[in-house]
Amino acid sequence: MHIPDGLLDFKTWGTLYGVSGGTTAYALYKVRNTLDEKKIPLLGITAAFIFAAQLLNFPVAAGVSGHFLGAMLACVLLGPWAGFLVMVVVLAIQCLIFADGGFAALGANIFNMALIAGPVCYFMFAASKSLMNKRLSERTSLLTSLAFFSWLSVVLAGAACAVELSISNVVKLSSGAIFGPIVGVNAIIGIGEAVITTIVVAVVLQARPDLVYSYSGHDVKLPLSEEAV
């Protein structure tokens, strides 16, 4: 889903550089006041995991491939803004060292894959989780919402990408020729995204629920000895 250079026109990539730059500054500001020092190793491991997973393209349809995105995973584990920053680190390294995604398009790529797929989807996920939590356990609400919104994150990131290509007059294509391949393909990739994200978070919830940012654990009855602490 990394946009190369030469597809977006100046007004599109320029605007998106501004939006992504501003959001990065805001995320740095938020994280600087709230990031727990103990979360730093998790920050590193999550970023490295996402970088590695994004390398493994799998075939989706005839002649088209896709890869894991990881923005929702990062946000649920670390919080929306630290998760956003993790994605910015991954995308910047892909662009600057490995030329994966264009340099002029970096702002657009951050907008699609870090902001839309990250905090934008995260806040919808959080709303859905707290609605479901009125009837269901927090664990069930979290994992069910996560499965859906991690799927949606890939679809929305793809849709944003398609919109950007469409409004860039550089591409003289009917919108059908853009939306079909990008959004259609991403609806399939999203299934893989949902499966991987949900399994990883379910495993972490089992082993160390305290490492999952969006899990408060209020509905868990602790044994007396631990409750006293």
Binding site: P4, G66, I182
Partner: peptide, 13 residues
């Protein structure tokens, strides 16, 4: 062994 096929965006490009 990762798939060398283009992704959705690359295909459109």
């Amino acid at each position: 062994w990762a798939s060398k096929s283009p992704d959705g965006v690359e295909k459109v490009a």
